[in-house]
Design a protein around this nucleic acid. Structure first.
Lengths: 218, 218
DNA sequence: CCAAAAGTGTTAGTGATACACCCATGT
DNA sequence: ACATGGGTGTATCACTAACACTTTTGG
């Protein structure tokens, strides 16, 4: 919880794009499912398993890698960075979290992949409970709200937010409140279902960027 | 235009799944982009090029094909079936359009792929102009409406539909009307932009299944 | 007692749905 | 003249967005 949306990047030790930052990845083995392969790659660089990966898109343009034709099946996941202890592997010189709003220049077409991922994440936020991945089991409503604010990169009205969440009926109150936050204590909540669920139609578009009527002429 | 949503399937001549119907496909060559590969495969079986393909999803489970590990990068497209003349290739015994609402048993995990595709298509219909792919350049509003009805598999109120379309401001009137449809002639329209565009936020959910409030508890 | 964050309701506007009749043509 | 499909308007309801003050705690 440090109020930023970050991406895990690894720094390349070898050409091409030596010293550039890139998305962690590797080859899919014959005996791994795609998702399992993603999990394995991730485990090599970090210490997390038991994490929800979602397939993003498959990138297969011919010029993606100057050395050879490479097809990348991109996955993404959300985690609290607290759950990680990074461990650089041999092939890379460094592994680090980077704010998605202040990225270095990336290797290959990885900037494009990230852009696509961010867009997807923002959409998903509107009709699923993906946000749950970024919080501990129990959390406060202001914390949940700030997940939305950080990912959507805009301010959200907290009264409307609370109303919407209440209507969606996806949380349950606990008896506990925060302490020592040096301010007024906040009630802790937990998700009724721990996995990511689709919101009912009526409750979609939880919070989405407002687009003025005048743009209708698209 | 025969009032049904159909899928192009090929019948397998060889094991496994001999005589089963399956989605057309093939291997991606080293020097083809993924989309180009899709177009090429399609061209082998039909006679269309110049068609908009969209990547659906990449399926990579280990048990998909009993012979070997196969990763399938699925694409889908929409076309008026009139634009096609089918030409069976050597590897298959037949190529045919099948109503998506009355499919035979399919080879491999192709039923699942199709299900996924239909779901995606229905969603896209709500916030893009994909439907345009299924119509000739000039078409009537009832025709456009029936595209929605067929794909969503439900009735749509034509007054609300016309209102919504007008508001979206994506069509332009032509001077022409239909003739000889043996009934009252209908005005012909055309899309202002010939490609698929995203609808403005305000105009999304053109037509979507109504979900009663009482389901809010997901 | 002051600063900081938590918590709480109402109103106005906009988009969605439901619904029934007249019109133009071909036969 | 009639059958068929094209075309049109209104009223209600539900969701969204905007907005300001009080409460609780720690220092």
């Amino acid at each position: 919880m440090d109020d930023d949306l970050k991406v895990l990047l690894v720094q390349r030790r070898v050409e091409p794009y030596q010293d550039f930052w890139s998305l962690p990845g590797g080859f899919v083995h014959m005996d791994e499912s795609l998702e399992q392969a993603g999990l394995n790659k991730l485990k090599e660089k970090t210490n997390v398993d038991d994490i929800y990966l979602e397939q993003l898109y498959t990138f297969g343009d011919l010029e993606r890698d100057p050395r050879a034709r490479v097809i990348t099946i991109a996955y993404y996941a959300l985690v609290s960075s607290e759950r990680f202890t990074l461990k650089p592997s041999d092939a890379v010189s460094d592994v680090k979290w980077h704010s998605i709003y202040a990225l270095p220049e990336l290797a290959f077409d990885h900037a494009r992949i990230l852009e696509y991922a961010l867009q997807r994440l923002r959409n998903k936020l509107g009709y699923t409970t993906v946000g749950s991945q970024l919080l501990p089991e129990k959390f406060t409503l202001p914390e949940l709200c700030s997940i939305y604010e950080i990912i959507l990169n805009k301010q959200i009205d907290k009264r409307n937010f609370r109303k919407k969440i209440a209507f969606l009926d996806i949380l349950e109150e606990t008896e506990e409140t925060t302490q020592k936050h040096s301010k007024k204590p906040a009630r802790l909540y937990r998700f009724k279902q721990s996995d990511i669920v689709e919101l009912p139609q009526a409750g979609r578009n939880v919070i989405q960027p407002k687009i003025p009527r005048s743009l209708k002429g698209l």
